Simulated assay, not measured.
Amino acid sequence: MTLPLREELRGIEPYGAPQLDVPVALNVNENPYGPSEAVVADVAAAVASVTGTLNRYPDREFTALRVALADYLGHGVAPEHVWAANGSNEVMLQILQAFGGPGRVAVSFAPTYSMYPEYARDASTGWVVGHREDDFSLDVEHALAVIAEHRPTVVLLPSPNNPTGTALPLDTVKAVCAAAPGVVVIDEAYGEFRRTGTPSALELLASTPNLIVSRTMSKAFALAGARLGYLAASTEICDALRVVRLPYHLSAVTQAVAGVALRHADELLARVDDLRAERDATVSWLREQGLEVADSDANFCLFGRFEDRHAVWQGLLDQGVLIRETGPDGWLRVSVGTPEEMAAFKAALLEVLGR
């Protein structure tokens, strides 16, 4: 039979970075440092404590978790200003479901996160993409012109940007929020990795009613497998997301694991400084090899330019090092791993480049 698939989905391959069994996996920006034995034990105890209640639905408002997330974020964020879901992917989809839809438009500026147009498509929202400058910064005048032309109900701006690692100045965020007729999402999935002196958009939240600042526990908290993303925004925005969320969308187990992680935040985030230092060292080393590298405030580096980037990617994979073939043509992205993993990456890259 011919399935009645939506026309815009015909021939589309599902999203997914390669999941390959290789010695060095540096392709999806994971934190290479797993939780300590103490954290593992606390997670096990927390999960055990809720297992006896799994015959009941979880707290659909995840009240305790919202309190803990608000406390972690600071900046005057209250529990009613927090929303969470199964990864920042679900958070973004809920934003598009609430504020997008038929006849509406979402906007971002390329290069940008590759899932954004898919969120828009899945929420039947039009998609418009502007451009970034050669150094991957965002020209304010261009951004305002795109917003004025298309009147988007959702603007999606990752900061630090994925795949480039570029952070946005607060003046740019202010200007975009002032011009946008709808909500503006500053996606800070990699926010904890910002270089010293790079501000968070959370500083603008209290004075900017259409601003949403999203985060994730997948990266700095090393909880990619737990699937917990969240945002801070006005009470009105959070209440709008409650309308489109699926019932009981955050399991009791997810809530318990995230709560443990937040109680151990100091320990789990202790490796962030190590990863920052390793990132900066990697940027410097790549530049010493004569390569272009984007300034990064994230836990990855975008580097190039290659006439045949796929050949470089494949050459690294042949040596057991998996990185990401993403971003503009001629560029590749490497996640920051342990010192041993980065040494393996460097040795493999030198081999591929014939050094």
Rank of each mutant, 00 (worst) to 15 (best):
L138D: 00
E351R: 14
A78M: 10
L332Q: 06
G100V: 11
V154H: 06
P14I: 08
D280E: 11
H249Q: 10
P339V: 13
V107A: 15
R56T: 14
V352S: 12
Q19P: 00
G191A: 06
A256F: 04
F221W: 15
V28L: 04
A220M: 06
L291H: 03
D239V: 02
I212A: 12
G52L: 11
I186L: 15
A224Y: 08
T164D: 00
L168Q: 02
L9F: 15
T338A: 10
Y57W: 15
E118S: 12
P32Y: 09
V185D: 12
A258G: 15
V272Y: 03
E30S: 00
E341K: 13
E118F: 13
D171F: 08
F300Q: 06
H150T: 11
P160V: 11
T254G: 03
A106R: 03
L73M: 10
G182P: 08
N31F: 01
V253L: 01
L170G: 08
A311N: 03
A48P: 01
A145S: 15
L26N: 02
A48H: 07
S49Y: 05
T164R: 01
N86D: 07
V50W: 12
A110Y: 14
E188L: 13
A347H: 12
V253S: 01
V24P: 01
D308M: 01
G87D: 07
D329G: 09
A343G: 13
V173D: 07
H131S: 14
L269W: 02
A222L: 01
D134K: 07
T216G: 08
A226H: 12
G11A: 04
N89C: 12
D135L: 09
A224N: 10
F306I: 00
F306R: 04
A145G: 14
A226S: 14
W83F: 15
L138R: 01
A261I: 03
R279Q: 00
A46G: 09
P247H: 09
G76Y: 08
F62G: 00
G76M: 10
A110I: 10
P23D: 08
S114W: 06
V283Y: 00
S234R: 13
A189Y: 03
A64D: 15
Y113R: 13
V312M: 05
A25I: 03
V185T: 09
L3F: 14
A148N: 08
I212T: 10
L20P: 06
E278R: 11
E307L: 05
A252R: 07
V105K: 11
H150E: 03
V183E: 12
A175N: 05
S214P: 04
P102F: 13
M342I: 15
D273Y: 01
G34W: 08
T63P: 05
D308E: 10
V91T: 09
S296L: 06
I237L: 12
G103V: 04
L73V: 08
F221H: 10
R194V: 07
A46W: 09
I323C: 01
V283Q: 05
T63K: 12
L138S: 02
A252E: 04
